[in-house]
Nucleic acid binder design. Structure first.
Lengths: 295, 295
DNA sequence: TTATTCCATAACTTTTATTTATAGGCAATA
DNA sequence: TATTGCCTATAAATAAAAGTTATGGAATAA
């Protein structure tokens, strides 16, 4: 069936007057006559009966009108739904972040975003930077927020936020007693470390390497809460992103150990496949991140 | 929204491969690319994302696919439903007949028709010939089966069946004793008559007039069953269409009084507005009537 | 690296839709 | 019963749209 024909039929069937249908469709009356005739030929069925001056629907016409009505209703619904997506009134955004980000920073951003676009549902997944980059190609996530700057394939990214990495320990820890410490001194103290593949660990190890040093490792764990628990019990010191220990620092449960000769930072990036394929929602999310990154 | 675009989108979204979609649509691949691009421009939304060689649906694309699916499903249903009408597998037929026809002849025809087209429902309405002709213009009935041959407006009709009009009375009635009777003799006997406007009455009166006679009227009633009841009790004689008294004649309850000098017949007609506007069902019904009229 | 798959673009052609002009049927009206 | 208005049908011409072929380029698989 030709939907052009159907549209013309639909208006004609509603009006039961070809001339007025033509007006509604903003076409000429002969165009209507022709289109309807063609539809009748295609379907091999009379759709209208003409008695004298007036036009009536045939049985088949009545039947077709019902379907046409449903079809054009769906068309309207579809357009409305797409407009809502365009206006970011609804939709979904899938973001992959590293674990630290997911727990300590994203909640804040998500609540800002939700206030702006209450109809959008956000789906967060967490994993290593590499896994999150992979998830972009799987179409599992549209955005990845990661610390590493090396991407395996042609990806686009924008720098977003510097994260300070602090050395922290229990206030009772031996290192916490000192006013400050140098990297060289620190290399002698075994540290609690994040797992291999962690962006934080990489930043720390890189800094040691840069100073031609290597850290000693006391414990290794991927769960940050577990690491903090160890630290609170006085079991060593660890490098942790500031935002992940802010609460413990302010409560005095943990204490920052100032390193006098360096400061370790991690540059985080928003990564995505390419600008063109970004949904409006993703764009809006990025805009919001950039606006709020300093606050 | 342009449904051509939508159709192309639909196949492309199902295949996630423009070239294969083009094959299914029996068009070239560039045609698909162009149509989809146009749809995206119209809707102001990206429908597909392309990663490397592969094509994926965007959020808006997924949404649109759902609607497209429903729409094309409806299209199929509509075509099926219309085919059923074309094949007279379903539908309705509205017929108007005179009272005699409705009661004594139509049931027979209707059961034949029903055997041929079990999906079609038949709606019978009865009234005077004039009322039934009117009902054609009201679109209340598609066919009228009437006895009169005079129609107020340009109608089409085909002759269908001659109905013999018999003079009948109780076997005990004085007229029933005679071998036969002439019209002139009959004019002296008061008759039981159908109501004014009845086609049977008109045929009888016309015949009297033709012989420059006029019938005497004993009783007048519109209900044929009531008239037969009167006759059975020996209350006069009446002209009745053969098919309406066949049963009583064969049972010997009533007896035909042979009129020697004339025979009264009524020509019945199938009347409709015009040939072109007849539904397939109506045509099928007419065909069946003509085939069965002699049996 | 080469061959292959797949989409995009451009120029051109075909098909389809639409227009203008016109005719003719029916119905209300004077 | 002519007259006018209201509708639809038809024809020829035009405009718009969809489609084609040819070609290029990017990505993938052999």
């Amino acid at each position: 069936m030709n939907f052009n024909h159907l549209k013309v039929f639909y208006e004609s069937a509603r009006e039961l007057n070809f001339s007025r249908a033509a007006e509604r469709l903003s076409i000429s009356q002969p165009a209507v006559s022709i289109q309807i005739k063609q539809l009748e030929v295609m379907l091999q069925v009379k759709l209208f009966n003409k008695i004298g001056n007036k036009v009536f629907l045939s049985g088949a016409g009545k039947l077709l009108l019902e379907y046409a009505q449903k079809i054009f209703e769906l068309e309207n619904e579809a357009e409305k739904a797409i407009n809502e997506i365009k206006e970011i009134k609804k939709g979904a955004l899938h973001i992959g972040t590293t674990k630290t980000y997911a727990h300590y920073l994203m909640p804040n951003y998500i609540s800002h975003f939700h206030a702006l676009y209450p109809g959008v549902s956000i789906h967060l997944s967490e994993g290593s930077s590499l896994e999150m980059i992979q998830s972009l190609f799987n179409m599992q996530n549209e955005l990845a927020i990661v610390a590493s700057t090396e991407y395996p394939k042609p990806l686009q990214s924008i720098a977003f936020g510097k994260e300070e990495v602090l050395l922290v320990a229990s206030p009772d820890h031996i290192l916490a007693k000192k006013a400050s410490i140098t990297m060289k001194e620190l290399a002698r103290f075994p540290l609690v470390m994040r797992e291999e593949g962690s962006a934080t660990r990489k930043a720390v190890v890189d800094m040691f390497k840069k100073m031609r040093l290597a850290p000693a490792i006391l414990y290794e764990a991927s769960n940050l809460e577990f690491i903090k628990e160890l630290l609170e019990r006085g079991e060593g010191a660890s490098f942790i992103v500031r935002s992940a220990v802010e609460k413990e620092l302010s409560q005095g449960i943990l204490k920052e150990i100032v390193i006098s000769d360096v400061s370790i930072t991690m540059n985080t990036h928003i990564v995505y496949i390419n600008e063109d394929s970004l949904s409006r929602i993703a764009r809006a999310f990025i805009d919001m991140l950039i606006i709020w990154q300093d606050k």
